[in-house]
Structures are given as C-alpha cells and as structure tokens.
Simulated assay, not measured.
Amino acid sequence: MAMHFSRTRRSRINGDDSILPLTNVVFLLLIFFMLAGSLASPQAFDIQPPVSQSEAQARRDGLEIQIAADGEIAIDGQPIELDALEERARDALEADPDLALRLKADGDGDATRVVAVMQALRDAGGHKLRLITLAPE
C-alpha cells in the first residue's frame, strides 16, 4: 500500500501586504484633513488693514482682535462687544501672561474706536500689542 502525503498549499502572507490598506486609508485621511482644514484664524469681518511702511513680516501667534470699518469687534473670529472685550482679554492673559495681542483694524475705520479697543486691552493687562498691517507692494 503506497502512502501518499498531500501537502496542503499554504499561502505565504507577507507582513507588508496586511498593513498596506491601513497605510492607504491613513494617507487619504491625512490628505482630506489637510485640504478640508483651515490653518488661518477665522475672519469675522472683511478687513483691509492699512499698508505698512516696513518690510518686516508679522508673527501669527497670540490672540487676534479684529475691528471692522463699521466698528464691530471680534476676537479670533467671534464677534464681541467692547464691554466684554476687556474681560475676555483678561481671562486669556491670566491663562498665559506672555500672550501677544494682535490688533487687526480696517484702514477705513474710526481711529477713536481703535484707541478705545487698545485702552480696553491695556486695562486687561495686555502689554504686548501688535498692530497688523499689509505689506507694502
């Protein structure tokens, strides 16, 4: 009696083959979030800051306060009243005393409104105030 042993064919699974679909999905998610996400802070108003006389680039860290041409105020894209501005800035400065405040005002806006906002920020304890302007052409 002849014994016949049949070998079962084992498929060799390469370790890279099982992780490749996962890598593809992660890569596609990365691309999606890069395209869908916004890296800039939201703009509450359409603001055209005045043109700067210097060539220096503005830093983008800190709390951004925006003043529209009609006098409306926003902090990091969220509209806020002048009365609440000082309290909101004080809370942010208590959390981070070295926080820089960036003021972006419309060039056609009222200068007295800008001065009132600057005074509210100073009263809140803000000592690092940067005025955002457009780079010269």
Score class of each variant (00 low, 15 high):
residue 49 P to K: 14
residue 49 P to L: 09
residue 50 P to A: 15
residue 50 P to K: 15
residue 50 P to L: 14
residue 50 P to E: 12
residue 51 V to K: 15
residue 51 V to R: 15
residue 51 V to F: 10
residue 52 S to D: 12
residue 52 S to H: 11
residue 53 Q to D: 15
residue 53 Q to T: 14
residue 53 Q to E: 15
residue 54 S to A: 11
residue 55 E to F: 07
residue 55 E to D: 13
residue 55 E to R: 11
residue 56 A to Y: 06
residue 56 A to S: 09
residue 56 A to P: 01
residue 56 A to W: 02
residue 56 A to E: 11
residue 56 A to V: 07
residue 57 Q to C: 00
residue 57 Q to E: 03
residue 58 A to L: 10
residue 58 A to W: 02
residue 58 A to E: 05
residue 58 A to N: 05
residue 59 R to E: 03
residue 60 R to N: 06
residue 60 R to A: 04
residue 61 D to G: 07
residue 61 D to Q: 10
residue 61 D to P: 03
residue 61 D to L: 04
residue 62 G to V: 01
residue 62 G to E: 09
residue 62 G to Y: 08
residue 63 L to H: 09
residue 63 L to C: 01
residue 63 L to Q: 09
residue 64 E to L: 13
residue 64 E to A: 01
residue 64 E to M: 10
residue 64 E to P: 00
residue 67 I to D: 00
residue 67 I to A: 06
residue 67 I to N: 03
residue 67 I to L: 11
residue 68 A to G: 08
residue 68 A to R: 07
residue 69 A to E: 13
residue 69 A to D: 10
residue 69 A to M: 10
residue 70 D to H: 14
residue 70 D to C: 13
residue 71 G to R: 13
residue 71 G to H: 14
residue 71 G to M: 14
residue 73 I to P: 10
residue 73 I to A: 06
residue 74 A to P: 06
residue 74 A to E: 09
residue 74 A to Y: 09
residue 75 I to Q: 13
residue 75 I to P: 12
residue 75 I to L: 14
residue 76 D to R: 00
residue 77 G to I: 03
residue 77 G to D: 10
residue 77 G to M: 05
residue 78 Q to L: 00
residue 78 Q to A: 08
residue 78 Q to V: 00
residue 78 Q to E: 13
residue 78 Q to C: 00
residue 79 P to W: 11
residue 79 P to T: 04
residue 79 P to I: 08
residue 79 P to L: 11
residue 80 I to N: 04
residue 80 I to L: 09
residue 81 E to C: 06
residue 81 E to V: 12
residue 81 E to S: 15
residue 82 L to I: 11
residue 82 L to W: 11
residue 82 L to E: 12
residue 83 D to M: 09
residue 84 A to Y: 05
residue 84 A to G: 02
residue 85 L to H: 05
residue 85 L to Q: 05
residue 85 L to N: 04
residue 85 L to A: 03
residue 87 E to F: 04
residue 87 E to H: 11
residue 88 R to Q: 15
residue 89 A to R: 12
residue 89 A to W: 04
residue 90 R to W: 03
residue 90 R to P: 01
residue 90 R to I: 01
residue 90 R to A: 09
residue 91 D to W: 06
residue 92 A to K: 10
residue 92 A to L: 01
residue 92 A to E: 12
residue 92 A to S: 09
residue 93 L to Y: 03
residue 94 E to A: 07
residue 94 E to S: 08
residue 94 E to R: 12
residue 94 E to N: 11
residue 94 E to K: 11
residue 95 A to P: 02
residue 95 A to Y: 03
residue 95 A to T: 05
residue 96 D to C: 03
residue 96 D to L: 04
residue 97 P to D: 01
residue 97 P to W: 03
residue 97 P to Y: 01
residue 97 P to C: 02
